[in-house]
Amino acid sequence: MTVVTAVIDNQLRYARTDAEVSSLILAALAEQHDWATLFYVWDRPCRESDDGSLHEYPGNQLRLDADPDSGWGALNYVNTADDSEPPGVWNSLNPAPPLDAPTIWFDPGTPTAFPASAVLPIDAIHDAVAEFCRTGRRPACLQWQGARWS
């Protein structure tokens, strides 16, 4: 059985059914968060211990941040272990980025923003996250650009 793990506001949340996955995606996109949301798809729940002795995650991750009030967001995909696709790091790509797009944060704590070319309408972000949750792979429903490892 596949388990989707989302780290929303630094809390692990799990989904096993389509309805639960839809709820996780909605939770990530419907309101502003202080931290980027991370999604993982694996054969078991991701987990970690408070003392750092346990840290179990798969080798690929989808990171998103969105500004629901403006209707924009951005994605970052990392693959370090899935042999079915090449390893690497990618950001979403908007071939015609909006001139007035808001700043979408890759990591608000540093602060590091996504490039403007990564900013997409929130509906496209939703569709890509839903695809990732079904496949566990970099979503093919949108274009990607190389990104640096941050």
Rank of each mutant, 00 (worst) to 15 (best):
I122G: 01
L142M: 15
A113P: 06
P139Q: 08
V119F: 01
Q143K: 12
D123V: 12
S117V: 11
G109H: 12
P115Y: 05
C133F: 06
V119I: 13
I125W: 03
P139R: 05
T135D: 00
S150W: 11
T110F: 12
W149P: 07
R134Q: 12
G136L: 10
E131L: 01
P111D: 05
G146V: 07
S117E: 14
S150V: 13
R134C: 13
D127H: 10
L120I: 15
R134L: 14
R134Y: 00
A113G: 02
R138M: 14
G109Y: 06
P108T: 06
F114Y: 15
A113C: 09
F106Q: 03
Q145N: 10
Q143L: 15
D123L: 09
T110A: 10
R134M: 07
D127R: 12
A113I: 09
P111W: 10
R148I: 11
T135P: 08
R148D: 15
F132A: 00
D123Y: 04
V129C: 01
Q143W: 08
P121L: 05
E131V: 01
P121W: 07
F106A: 06
V129D: 00
R138P: 09
D107E: 15
R137V: 04
S117H: 04
I125F: 10
A113F: 05
C141G: 15
A118L: 10
C141D: 07
A116V: 15
W105T: 01
W105Q: 00
A140F: 06
D127Y: 03
G109D: 14
D123S: 12
L120H: 07
V129F: 03
D107P: 04
T135Q: 03
V129T: 00
L142G: 03
I122D: 05
P121F: 08
A128C: 00
S150F: 13
V129H: 02
T110L: 14
D123E: 13
I125A: 03
I122T: 11
W105C: 02
W144L: 07
P108C: 09
P108N: 03
D127A: 15
T135S: 07
F106S: 14
L120F: 10
P108E: 02
L120T: 00
R138V: 11
T112H: 10
V119T: 13
A118Y: 00
G109A: 14
F114M: 10
A130E: 12
F106K: 06
D123Q: 11
G146W: 04
A124V: 13
A113E: 01
T135E: 04
A116W: 05
V119D: 02
T135R: 04
G109F: 05
G136I: 14
A124M: 11
